[in-house]
């Protein structure tokens, strides 16, 4: 059984058809990248999956269950988790407290402390733990939010541009993080513009264009696809 299945999903913003009959299936255990030009509707698709937006028509199935009508927090309880495009950390709180808030519903007391420590190490943020999250660099905020997202031990992790604002080395480290999580059994769906990252992690790639699934395949197939190159070029010229 597939982990996530989008069936004929449609969403309009006024006259704008942002999500146009999208069908997408994720198999458990895969790392899947979603790419496409600016405004293609990638983030909107995430918001539909998360229940922040509601589709005009179509269905969302998670592990076989139809979750289209569920509230966001209930979808999180089913095993979804997200890092937003604009890092959604708790800016006024310390790095440590950010993680504590994410972890506290599953762990208590000494166990909670140990989990926070483990996560800080995984993210490479030990020396920043007392910092106010709002003072972190953009890349560190991304990592902190990834840390908050994975502390829920999700079955499906949604990452919206996880490497935006990162140096090539940091991007590579983020790729390794994602691969380690995947090795532990986490399925990942990542929106990304950075092709080096996509090449590093993606097992399958879906191209979204004007709200529609435009192409799908391995990274090599996608890169070789002239139609795909054309829509990116078209955007560059526009």
């Amino acid at each position: 059984m597939s982990l996530l299945e989008l069936r004929e999903l449609n969403k309009h913003f006024g006259g704008l058809h942002v999500t146009n009959a999208v069908n997408l299936t994720l198999e458990p255990g895969e790392i899947h990248c979603l790419i496409g030009p600016n405004g293609a509707g990638k983030s909107t698709l995430f918001r539909l999956i998360l229940g922040e937006h509601h589709p005009g028509s179509g269905d969302i199935l998670f592990a076989g269950e139809n979750i289209t009508a569920l509230k966001s927090f209930a979808r999180i309880h089913r095993g979804l988790s997200v890092k937003f495009q604009v890092p959604g950390v708790f800016k006024g709180l310390s790095v440590r407290q950010n993680l504590e808030i994410a972890l506290q519903s599953r762990h208590r007391g000494a166990e909670l402390e140990a989990e926070i420590g483990r996560l800080l190490t995984f993210l490479g943020l030990e020396s920043e733990q007392a910092q106010t999250a709002g003072n972190l660099s953009h890349g560190q905020k991304q990592w902190l939010e990834i840390g908050m997202a994975i502390s829920l031990k999700p079955r499906l992790l949604l990452l919206d541009e996880p490497t935006a604002g990162m140096s090539p080395e940091e991007t590579h480290m983020t790729g390794e993080m994602v691969q380690r999580l995947n090795a532990d059994g986490m399925t990942v769906l990542a929106i990304e513009h950075d092709m080096a990252f996509v090449r590093q992690v993606a097992q399958r790639v879906t191209v979204l264009h004007l709200g529609q699934v435009f192409a799908q395949g391995s990274i090599d197939e996608i890169v070789a696809d002239e139609r795909v190159a054309a829509i990116y070029l078209g955007q560059a010229h526009a």
Partner: peptide, 22 residues
């Protein structure tokens, strides 16, 4: 932990909800 969630909602309600809090 209740107070933690309260300030989390002040800081970023969307993030708080996406950590599974109603």
């Amino acid at each position: 932990s209740f107070g933690n969630v309260i300030v989390a909602i002040r800081e970023n309600p969307e993030r708080a909800e996406m950590l599974g809090y109603d």
